[in-house]
């Protein structure tokens, strides 16, 4: 339960940063989609089961803080989960390369779905500009950001597990006669 509360807090913070801070730091005229990178990294590092919960949750939060039809991002971010499942087929050895490919595909699908929703709700978006001037730079940014996040997350996990192992090792040494299970 505590873990999920932390997850909600993290997603809320990411959504607020994405909607209220990142518009000030545009790259190539595009706002970086931090939520997309976080959700991809989450599905890769923590697994698809968690991804199935955090993707719609994070997408809803982005939708809530943006002035878009509420739910548009829920639809637009949904391809992240099926795409992230592709890592199960082990077609590419490198997880980071696969994450970059997933980020690329997910960003394009996100843009298409988002534009379809905007079109369907009467916003009449500029498709050519949306795809060329927004999707391409956003896809490249996510291709770099998602693998970096995964790398950082894995390192943090490794560091934590090493710390945990160390403590256990000490504890095990203290209890005489028990076999050491951690090296």
């Amino acid at each position: 339960m505590k873990q999920w509360a932390i997850a909600v807090g993290v997603l809320l913070a990411v959504a607020v940063v994405q909607c209220y801070a990142l518009p000030y730091f545009r790259v190539a005229g595009v706002r970086f989609d931090l939520m997309m990178a976080v959700l991809i990294a989450w599905a890769f590092v923590r697994g698809i089961d968690e991804g199935m919960v955090v993707v719609p949750l994070g997408a809803f939060m982005v939708s809530f803080f943006s002035l878009e039809p509420l739910g548009a991002s829920v639809i637009a971010y949904s391809p992240v989960v099926p795409l992230a499942m592709v890592r199960n087929i082990n077609a590419i050895e490198s997880e980071l390369l696969l994450a970059a490919a997933v980020a690329l595909a997910a960003t394009f699908l996100q843009s298409i779905l988002y534009l379809i929703v905007l079109d369907g709700t009467g916003y009449a978006p500029d498709w050519s500009r949306g795809m060329i001037e927004v999707s391409i730079p956003a896809a490249f940014m996510n291709m770099v950001a998602a693998p970096l996040l995964i790398l950082a997350w894995r390192r943090a996990q490794r560091g934590r597990s090493q710390t945990t192992s160390g403590l256990t090792f000490t504890n095990v040494r203290r209890s005489r006669g028990r076999r050491l299970e951690f090296r």
Partner: peptide
């Protein structure tokens, strides 16, 4: 998720 998204929209 798609249905929920459309419903919300």
């Amino acid at each position: 998720v798609f249905v929920v998204g459309v419903f919300l929209v």
